[in-house]
Design a protein around this nucleic acid. Structure first.
Length: 579
DNA sequence: GCCGTTTTCGGCCCGACTGTTTTCAGTCG
């Protein structure tokens, strides 16, 4: 079993225990363990070999024993025992928003309901409203929620690019109201997670109820899930692109700092901060600090104040995951994260020589406009037939055209390159003699993505051992909603890349973001260099660089870790270009 | 079930909203 399977099993165990009405802190321990396992950058079976499973935060003797059972047998006894007592459909019922373990248990015990279909039927027949603490309204909400769940069973997540666009649209709509002073984006979107489940917004206003009613009355509101005096939750229609959940909190400006800090999360980061506050004698909430002794409270207008009052250096939103950033802040060792202005060029761009939409000269002009010092034109190699990959002959014509255009531009260096296919056997799609003529070589897997772990790892290792290769593009191959990452020995790839002084790419396409944040952080810890590239096929794609930078920041990367933050001279030296 | 700057027991973040109740349990983030 791999880490995510083990984590899932712990999550399911937590749900089952909750249903049974077990000690909530025991439930929490399972959930906590599941979360920590998901965030590990090493496979548990490796850690098992080394005997350091118990070092993982939140894993004690009992859970370690259960992990070992799973590694050896694919399950653990305690789980089997509990799962036997509880019908499978119960888990789905608890997965419906608004229904938790207590209600699921009530439905099961009193009405024998053990599936979402059964629940919908019971609600339709008005059998729910007769239960204790239930009524017509509860029944109606449960029915609506259950039907919605049936229709969109897969929990909708959205790419950060899409969510950001929608958030801006709503932000603009809200800001047009004169009684709203300001609207800020919070939540996982502000932390720049690669995908988000919902959008969290904060509106500053002295008339919260008016804001809530304006918000819930917007034209594209499909459904109102929650409305209160200072808070509302809606489902917002994105026309052909489905819909997205939006949560809004409305507050007085005096609380903006603490509210923004709270709503930005992550949950784990906040819990850690609140514990820290308690140690100092304060309770921390979205409204600020309360002295436990005197009951006096201090609100925070600026987010920086929350961190300052805890004796911490300000922590950038992207790394608030409780993965060591609080400790780093305490000891003054927070990393200086890469910023947009640190990026001096883009090293992975396609022109209309292969499957890009525009000519090289247009690309160069767009790059100049963005203030880049250099770019690399890296069209596809012959095997990628579908993308009109360049034959050797066309590749040399392509290089010539780049040289001609270069003569007309003295404020930008145009590197001639290729995104060269790594064939199934690990050989490259051009001969070494051809690759030698190029300024930069990006190697990438495109076809034959279903190799097993051993073969895929060997294939990429072979490419990394080629002396002409500079960068490995989209190293794990994952695409949101389309394709999982290759089965790959990432540790091995990192080690070989390090030995051969190759850079790994963070591909900025919102559908790829590959390497992801966790692997980017791991790459840095392994001393590897990173290239943040757009893989642009159109001029608009140039702007995707921001998403790649987000991933790099979430991976704790600074400009020193990134080759396209180098100046031109330094980059040429790194690439081995001597002219 | 985990954990330790009150360390082997007794804690475990904090507040909003809803629908039911007539003071609160359940759910969510």
């Amino acid at each position: 079993m791999d880490n995510s399977q083990i984590a899932d099993m712990f999550s399911r165990m937590a749900m089952l225990l909750e249903f049974k009405g077990e000690d909530p802190f025991k439930v929490k321990a399972y959930n906590n363990a599941a979360r920590n396992i998901k965030r590990l950058d090493e496979e548990l079976f490796h850690m098992y070999g080394k005997g350091n499973i118990e070092d993982i935060n939140g894993i004690g003797k009992a859970l370690e024993d259960k992990i070992i059972q799973m590694l050896e047998k694919g399950t653990f006894k305690a789980y089997e025992k509990v799962a036997e007592e509880i019908p499978e459909g119960i888990m789905e019922i608890m997965d419906i928003p608004g229904i938790g373990p207590k209600q699921a248990r009530l439905f099961y015990e009193k009405l024998g309901i053990s599936s979402v279909d059964g629940l919908v039927k019971a609600a339709g027949e008005h059998r729910i409203r007769k239960l204790p603490r239930m009524g017509p309204k509860q029944e109606e909400n449960i029915l609506r929620s259950a039907i919605r769940y049936q229709q969109h069973n897969s929990r909708g997540r959205h790419t950060i690019a899409f969510a950001m666009k929608m958030a801006e649209e709503i932000r603009e709509a809200l800001c047009s109201a004169e009684f709203i002073e300001n609207v800020v984006i919070a939540g996982s979107l502000r932390r720049k997670k690669e995908t988000v489940g919902d959008i969290d917004l904060i509106a500053v206003s002295s008339d919260p109820e008016k804001v809530v009613s304006f918000f819930t009355g917007m034209e594209k509101v499909e459904d109102v899930l929650v409305t209160g005096t200072h808070k509302a939750s809606i489902i917002y229609s994105c026309n052909t692109m489905g819909s997205i959940n939006i949560d809004l909190r409305v507050i007085d400006g005096h609380f903006l700092g603490s509210m923004l800090q709270y709503l930005t999360g992550s949950k784990e980061h906040n819990i850690h901060l609140r514990k820290l506050a308690l140690l100092k004698g304060y309770s921390l909430s979205e409204y600020g600090f309360t002295d436990q002794g005197t009951d006096k409270s201090v609100s925070c207008k600026r987010e920086e104040d929350v961190y300052r009052l805890l004796g911490l250096e300000y922590i950038p939103a992207e790394i608030r995951e409780d993965l060591g950033e609080i400790e780093a802040s305490q000891s003054g060792n927070l990393p200086a994260l890469v910023k947009k202005e640190d990026i001096r060029g883009d090293l992975h761009i396609h022109s209309n020589w292969s499957d890009g939409t525009v000519g090289i000269e247009n690309i160069v002009q767009a790059a100049v406009q963005r203030g880049y010092e250099y770019i690399a034109i890296t069209d596809h190699s012959p095997s990628t037939v579908i993308a009109n990959g360049l034959s050797e002959k066309r590749l040399f014509e392509h290089v010539n055209e780049i040289r001609c255009i270069q003569e007309e531009y003295d404020n930008i260096r145009i590197l001639s390159g290729t995104e060269c296919d790594i064939l199934a056997d690990g050989k490259l799609d051009y001969s070494n003699g051809v690759l030698e003529e190029l300024d930069i070589v990006i190697a990438a897997v495109h076809a034959g993505q279903n190799l097993n772990r051993e073969k895929m790892t060997r294939r990429i290792v072979a490419a990394l051992e080629n002396e002409h290769v500079d960068i490995l593009a989209h190293p794990t191959g994952r695409k949101f909603g389309r394709r999982a990452a290759y089965d790959l020995d990432v540790d091995k790839i990192f080690a070989v890349a390090k030995d051969n002084e190759k850079a790994l790419e963070i591909n900025s396409s919102p559908w790829r973001l590959d390497l992801n944040d966790i692997n980017a952080k791991k790459a840095k810890e392994n001393g590897l260099k990173i290239a943040i590239n757009t893989d642009a096929h159109t001029i608009e794609h140039f702007d995707n660089i921001g998403f790649g930078i987000d991933v790099a920041r979430r991976g704790w990367l600074g400009p020193d870790d990134i080759i396209n933050c180098m100046g031109m001279k330094e980059l040429c030296t790194w690439l081995g270009i001597h002219k």
